[in-house]
């Protein structure tokens, strides 16, 4: 009995300590950076003077890169998941693909950066463009999208599929009209989770050579670019305290974007559930 109490107390203490550390992080970031936040900070270009610098190119770059990443990774990821969950179950090929995806999900993100550098930047000649960055991030999040979509498809009761077949529907009609709508809330949540991960990724984009000082916003998919986490990293690696303050303000924006995305995910999921009754 005493042991039980001790074990529980220690566990609760550890969990509280971890959450307090998260709290300290947030308090630290907000107290350092809140004063720097302003409309000008969002709409200014980087500058050698910390007080003039802003995150405009990084913000636009993030939107470009993540938008394009989603455009590639979402359809391909969902299609792969549908194949693995609904079509190719049990075959030797699907077994191989499954093991492969599980392993890909554990490859460190910086290795994807090296792949992007070798494949997109050099071999395909994309240069250090939005295209190369999005391609790299799309490969990076693809396993996450596939795994979470499969999870969502697996929750759809088998009876729905059987009822659809019994009415004479083909396999694809069943998937498209019955399975996907039911699985959609789960799929959406997984997608937003995957894209939030992509937004925070820094290392692979540094590796493919995303710029750290960009005095212009990207104007197309072949344009050089920077993203928010890289701008934060750049400010962090300077010794002056004023730049560290800029980094804090950048982190606040990054965290708010992530928070916003998660709020959208939850709202979408809830509305979808209510809509389906």
């Amino acid at each position: 009995m005493f042991g039980d109490l001790l074990l529980q107390t220690m566990a609760i203490l550890i969990i509280l300590l971890a959450l307090m550390a998260l709290g300290a992080l947030l308090v630290d970031v907000f107290s350092d950076g809140f004063g720097r936040l302003s409309w000008a900070f969002l709409t200014s270009f980087p500058s050698r003077r910390a007080s003039d610098a802003g995150i405009y190119p990084a913000l636009i770059g993030t939107i470009f890169v993540i938008g394009l990443t989603a455009l590639v990774a979402v359809p391909v990821g969902i299609a792969s998941a549908i194949y693995l969950e609904e079509y190719g179950t049990g075959g030797r090929w699907s077994r191989l693909i499954e093991i492969n995806i599980a392993n890909l999900a554990g490859v460190p993100s910086i290795i994807y950066g090296l792949l992007g550098l070798g494949l997109f930047v050099r071999t395909l000649g994309f240069g250090r463009s939005v295209m190369a960055g999005s391609g790299t991030l799309a490969l990076l999040v693809l396993p996450v999208v596939i795994l979470s979509t499969r999870e969502a498809l697996r929750t759809v009761p088998f009876t729905i599929r059987e009822a659809s077949y019994a009415l004479g529907a083909t396999k694809w009609q069943t998937v498209w009209h019955q399975v996907l709508p039911v699985a959609m809330p789960g799929i959406l949540t997984g997608l937003i989770f995957a894209l939030s991960r992509a937004i925070g990724e820094t290392a692979p984009l540094i590796t493919i050579g995303a710029l750290t000082y960009v005095p212009f916003a990207p104007d197309g998919v072949w344009s050089p670019f920077t993203v928010l986490p890289i701008q934060i990293f750049n400010w962090l690696s300077r010794p002056q305290a004023a730049f560290a303050q800029n980094a804090s303000a950048g982190i606040i924006v990054l965290l708010l974007v992530l928070l916003g995305m998660n709020a959208v995910a939850i709202t979408l999921r809830d509305r979808y559930r209510r809509f389906r009754g």
Partner: peptide, 15 residues
């Protein structure tokens, strides 16, 4: 759908 799924093997091969 199969080609999409098999594409993931190409990622590993590419790495």
């Amino acid at each position: 759908l199969f080609l999409c799924a098999a594409g993931s093997v190409l990622i590993t091969a590419g790495i």
